[in-house]
Write a protein that binds this DNA or RNA. Structure first.
Lengths: 160, 160
DNA sequence: ACCGCATACTTCAACCTTAAAATATTTGTC
DNA sequence: GACAAATATTTTAAGGTTGAAGTATGCGGT
């Protein structure tokens, strides 16, 4: 508790970390932009729609709306809108949760599954291409290190 | 040219790279959310506003609107709106570019600089805290590797 | 059974974001 | 110099995103 005046002074260390953060952000945006572009042009869909369908595909029994927003790290109100649109298009359906009339499960329709599988295969190939310069071992090391970081951010977030 | 049927098959390699991408995305979102929250609560501003001011601070003579959107990796129309609002608040000003009446430079006002400096010091300290688990050397290695990746994505993007 | 608080979701206003169309200006070509 | 193509920016329509307010339901204590 009560951090000792958590210095706001700039040090070589904090500069190095800031630089890392800016790189992380830059690379992520660049890749997101490429994926967005490809999804729009080749599958007439958007990144948020794809993200929702992807999360639902990993959970065939469906996810509660709040679980969905938790997984995607976006707000509750946000997923409401995206699921609305996907529902209109017949790709996703809302299912009542027995025993809790407040809750709703979102899950892929049969058509949603078919559509998603087509998108997902290409998506994976695009990523594979974008990271081609990095061999699988290095990718694994990177991913593991980021995983540790993510876990730390997660637990720290809860405490705060 | 003409990649040999650029396979859409899923391999252990592509899985590893996909996993890396998802981690990258997850960590970036998590950090963005924390920063957004802190900027809102402690400086009554938003991440996009901060990003624009940050870019302008790194270029004291100002940036053309198109350079600004290029640096931030967002669309032209996007920065128009953000600069509009920052201008209304007296933090940024548009300056005509001598010799090209189509172009506009955006730059921080004196007040914008003062305000930004206050935000930036804390921002750097927040990042420092979020990446505390990672020592400076590791941060440098990570940043360099991401830099190589970014460069590759950049050059590849142009060709495509 | 009632009450108060918590939970799950939706709605809302404001802002962010994109892609495409529109506007204004420059540049190259004849 | 006129004109077509290119460039820099803004505008527009549609969708995405947030935080806060609103609605409905659940839950625990009395």
């Amino acid at each position: 508790m009560n951090a000792p005046a958590e210095s706001t002074r700039s040090t070589p260390q904090s500069k190095a970390r800031l630089r890392l953060w800016l790189r992380l952000l830059g690379v992520t945006r660049k890749i997101e932009n490429e994926l967005r572009d490809k999804l729009r042009r080749e599958h007439d869909t958007t990144l948020p729609r794809f993200d929702v369908m992807s999360a639902l595909h990993r959970h065939p029994d469906g996810l509660r709306m709040s679980e969905l927003s938790g997984v995607l790290k976006v707000s509750n109100g946000n997923v409401t809108g995206i699921v609305d649109r996907l529902t209109e298009e017949g790709l996703v359906e809302r299912v009542a949760v027995p025993g809790d009339r407040r809750a709703m499960m979102a899950r892929l329709t049969e058509r949603g599954q078919t559509v998603f599988i087509g998108q997902a295969a290409e998506h994976e190939a695009w990523i594979d291409g974008l990271f081609a310069e990095m061999d699988a071992d290095e990718a694994r090391i990177f991913a593991n290190r980021l995983g540790e970081l993510a876990e730390l951010l997660e637990t720290r977030g809860e405490t705060q």
